[in-house]
Design a binder for these strands. Sequence first.
DNA 1: CGATAAACAATCAAAAACGCTCAAAAGAGG
DNA 2: CCTCTTTTGAGCGTTTTTGATTGTTTATCG
Lengths: 248, 248
Amino acid sequence: MLKEERYDRILAILDEEKYISAQKLSEKLFVSLPTIRRDLAELDRRNQIIRSHGGAKMVEPEHIVTPLNFRKTVNSFQKRMLCQSAANLVNDNEIIFIDSSTTTLQMADFLGEKKNITVITNGISLATLLVQKGIKTYCTGGEIFQNSLAHFGSFAEDFIRRFNIDTMFFSCHGVNDNGMLTDPSLPETQIRKVAINQSKKTVFLCDKSKFSLSTPYNLMSIQEIDYIITDSPKAKDFFCTKNNIITV
Amino acid sequence: MLKEERYDRILAILDEEKYISAQKLSEKLFVSLPTIRRDLAELDRRNQIIRSHGGAKMVEPEHIVTPLNFRKTVNSFQKRMLCQSAANLVNDNEIIFIDSSTTTLQMADFLGEKKNITVITNGISLATLLVQKGIKTYCTGGEIFQNSLAHFGSFAEDFIRRFNIDTMFFSCHGVNDNGMLTDPSLPETQIRKVAINQSKKTVFLCDKSKFSLSTPYNLMSIQEIDYIITDSPKAKDFFCTKNNIITV
DNA sequence: CGATAAACAATCAAAAACGCTCAAAAGAGG
DNA sequence: CCTCTTTTGAGCGTTTTTGATTGTTTATCG
């Protein structure tokens, strides 16, 4: 196995597990502990992970300096389940918006069978995947940001305002204990607000890593969301809400 | 087997596998390791793969999934020369437009060294490449068309009208014997007209396959172009023009 | 605070991969 | 048919990577 490939696999594992010991990594990847330590040291130097005694944890998004292209390569099974469930809420002939995030990316795989749907998105990667499935796709214009390969800012927001959207699918960094959806990025929060305003229904894709996570900017209260799709059965208790909670 | 053919096969394998060791390649292609190493060095020099100890990984972290047949046309060495020459016309701090075509795609590889340039484009693949080189990139919004992975239509045209462009780089399907630039696609012709209107200078990338080719829609006369970059020394006679003709 | 166990950095040797040179083989052109 | 050029493969010394070993540092718990 190539070194870079091993790096990617470590990052992929950390994307799932949040924390992993050097010991476990050594077993999973069939290399010795010193090698794993050297890898972790290098990845830490690149600011892609945070080292700690015994292993490493993933970088929190607000600390990300280097763009994390690797995240796109992660085909998280959890996220895939959320996306499949989300796609079930899409009816033929609808106009939907999907925001740019690693969580929603795999929705492209489940929309190919729908008839005459239109998707609007600010994510370049997602747009490309959708187009290749033969789905009518609009991408908002504007500056492209390197770390997320997506459009934000007033250009993109104006673009979205031109549409009447049936359903808006999105994710965000976390939900804090007051039931507020929060995110470390202001432009991302802004564009989601605009898209939500143009939409009849909102669907929030929320894997369990997002619970009790507070970051600088508030998007909205969880109470205002129409559908919450989650992989944790504890979501109902945590959210204390009567919305439609779909557990996959 | 021809060398270029081996290059193509290596790229095709990397499209599938993402990582490959020199050892494995040597077995798959029935050539010796030194040969594979030379191939990988050359492909790395062309920015088509990223070398690493033991082998190579694909250059794009896989999100923009270029269809396989796409690569073949993209990798043309002639086009690469045109693009390199075109990039020489770009100065620091400029705002340039590059239209979406297989001919202009490789300009991304030659713009990384420029300081503080801004690129506007309607091509998704090109935009992605540019962003990954750290270049400030704006992509026009709008519907995305499957066969070209690019934006056309009034959304995109309006977007372009917001900019004052220093130089516009483009290609088109052919030049007929009356000296008219022609193209089989009306939307593409339209968007080029708009971009040309917003630009101080125009640069036409014209490989020799485009001579004496007439298709339905007229873009403009060759006389109105500021720079013509071509790979055929016969261009001067053919065009009968006094523009700046740059032969590579 | 001190003992203990785990994790660590540093060093070193073996293995793998590398670049380089050179000669043989294949191709192009007269 | 011969010469010149390009491409390929083999040999060899060098560099990189890896895993074992060592002694040191760090965390934990009584």
